[in-house]
């Protein structure tokens, strides 16, 4: 069995800073991590390998420094890491991203064996669109299972998979055919700690590095900024409310009473409604 896991390197959100004058995001010096949602996909893939054997290939598209994320993924015990990096990919929206990733997945299939499952995370913590998984599936003609909380059964002989998919009002139990694309839900498992051998191997492992041409990308014009139908035109700070917040004076009467008075003065009908709500308890 061959499983491909797509991961994205993202800035560690807790440490991101905005330039106080230019209002732009300061990426320099911000530590990067594997998109946290992708760890659930990684663990799901490794757990399947434990049960069924085979190999796990991890793929990321990003700048050369995204190699760090692949080295990290290697410490969890994956078999192979592929870095898709090329200046033509810069500025890609999700449509251009899936074009490049789909090409690389095809190439991985040709080079290392066709995948049975392609995993992605549910979404990233930076772009946060959740569009890349379904996009890859469509481009490769794979069936898709999104928001998967649990893989119930995998039958390699019959080429089928059954999984539990989160939907609005409950859980759908779906069965579909392999190969397919699965986006894993958060908290669906816990990433393992790799062993000592994995850590040693991670430091030395050869990472497969592909340019657009290496990956067999057919049309450079469909990559990066040029290949992106969406255009970010304006970045701006949200306007404060026209009217400033009324600040409650904490010096005079008990501040709690003062605050409540302010609330009911602004929303006179609220008191009766709150009394009614409170009676419900």
């Amino acid at each position: 069995m061959h499983i491909i896991v797509c991961i994205k390197q993202v800035p560690d959100s807790a440490q991101i800073r905005v330039h106080p004058v230019t209002n732009t995001i300061m990426r320099q010096g911000v530590p990067t991590i594997i998109n946290p949602y992708d760890l659930f996909a990684l663990e799901a893939a490794l757990a399947l390998r434990d049960r069924f054997g085979g190999t796990v290939t991890v793929l990321t598209m990003g700048p050369p420094s995204a190699e760090d994320s692949l080295r990290k993924a290697l410490t969890f015990g994956i078999d192979r890491a592929v870095l898709l990096t090329d200046r033509f990919f810069a500025g890609a929206d999700t449509l251009a991203t899936t074009y490049a990733l789909a090409a690389a997945i095809r190439k991985i299939g040709e080079t290392f064996g066709a995948p049975d499952i392609v995993f992605t995370g549910k979404q990233t913590i930076d772009g946060d669109t959740a569009q890349v998984g379904p996009g890859i599936a469509k481009r490769l003609g794979l069936l898709q299972l999104t928001y998967v909380a649990k893989i119930n059964t995998l039958d390699l002989e019959a080429g089928t998979i059954e999984a539990e998919r989160r939907s609005e009002g409950g859980v759908q139990v779906l069965q579909t055919r392999l190969p397919c694309l699965v986006t894993m839900l958060e908290a669906s498992n816990e990433i393992r700690r790799g062993g000592m051998a994995d850590a040693l191997r991670a430091a030395r492992a050869e990472i497969v590095k592909w340019s657009a041409q290496d990956a067999g990308v057919a049309d450079i014009a469909k990559c990066g900024l040029r290949g992106s139908p969406t255009i970010v035109k304006r970045v701006f700070a949200p306007p404060p409310r026209a009217e400033k917040a009324t600040m409650v004076d904490i010096a005079g009467q008990p501040p709690a009473d003062a605050l409540i008075a302010h609330i009911f003065q602004r929303a006179p009908k609220l008191e009766a409604e709150l009394a009614a709500l409170a009676r419900g308890y």
Binding site: P11, P229, I231, K233, R234
Partner: peptide
């Protein structure tokens, strides 16, 4: 909203 700071961005799909 855009990632990170307290910022919003406006996105267009002009030619599709």
């Amino acid at each position: 909203p855009t990632f990170g700071g307290s910022l919003l961005c406006t996105i267009y799909t002009l030619n599709y």
